[in-house]
Design a protein around this nucleic acid. Structure first.
Lengths: 157, 157
DNA sequence: ATCTCTATTTTTAGCTT
DNA sequence: CAAGCTAAAAATAGAGA
């Protein structure tokens, strides 16, 4: 059989897991090299197999990229907020299929009252929690702080 | 035309180069997540666009992987580190965007009025975009080219 | 500047050797 | 186990919207 149905879960069989790890790791490095090549970018990939073997690749070098990364992200809370470009009148209308279908979401946010804002605030908080939980569930990381939202500092105020 | 013959050279056109960078970077992160997921391995990817933006992803975290790497390679020559140049990767570890949209962002809408919905809708789109980007493995840089924020109280800090 | 679409290429799960 | 094979699945260049 050459038929597969794809899966996204952890491969339980140790042998298969290792085989897949090797195959995918090779592709990952290949892709990285292509990205660097084609886009003239810098990139580094570091992987640890369960056996503990280290595999790394980087351009110009792993160290260079890592150092630059360390330098560019010294504090996890100094990310400048989005710069206001030029989206005054039309900005609220980030059009999507849903919007066009319903035609219900075209009003600007400016008219929102305090009460509504508060409701939104609460709703967003709840949603944020769900999203964060979902992300944690999906990625199943052991460290929340390093997953993304906390780093990016996604918050409601 | 949809014909290509692929080449591994640097893309000269700046716009195309950036587009390709974005596409390939997203795939690279996806591949990394899949590798981690399926093979229960640790991995980190760090990329710098020519514009200087940083994008990184790691499991359990970028820092963990980097530190482990640094620890495993005290002197850049003695410990067996496989500096590779090949790679692979594929499959999806996370559900599709459609699924996440319907599953995560619709529920809060039910309990809200139209006005709130309008505002929430826009805000959620922004947040969703950030979350999706985050899932794709982004750690924002100082430029925030991909992190447009809404004017709805949703902010980064 | 994205996002979509799609022909074509590339990756890869599952076998086989 | 590493290596090859193959068909299914995924990634992607290029063009359009």
């Amino acid at each position: 059989m050459v038929r597969r149905k794809i899966e996204i879960k952890r491969i339980e069989d140790k042998a298969k897991r290792h085989t897949t790890f090797t195959k995918r790791r090779q592709c990952l490095f290949k892709k990285t090299r292509e990205l660097v090549r084609r886009c003239d970018a810098q990139a580094a990939v570091i992987t640890f197999s369960l056996a503990g073997n280290v595999f790394a690749f980087g351009h110009p070098s792993v160290d260079d990229v890592v150092n630059r990364y360390a330098a560019s992200v010294p504090d996890h809370d100094e990310i400048p907020v989005h710069e206001e470009t030029e989206m005054k009148g039309k900005d609220a209308a980030i059009e999507t299929k849903e919007d066009e279908d319903t035609g219900l979401f075209e009003e600007p946010l400016k008219d929102m009252g305090m009460e509504e804002l508060e409701k939104l605030h609460v709703a967003m908080k709840e949603m944020k929690k769900k999203v964060v939980d979902r992300i944690n569930g999906i990625i199943s990381s052991s460290k929340n702080e390093d997953l993304g939202l906390p780093h990016t500092g996604l918050t409601l105020n």
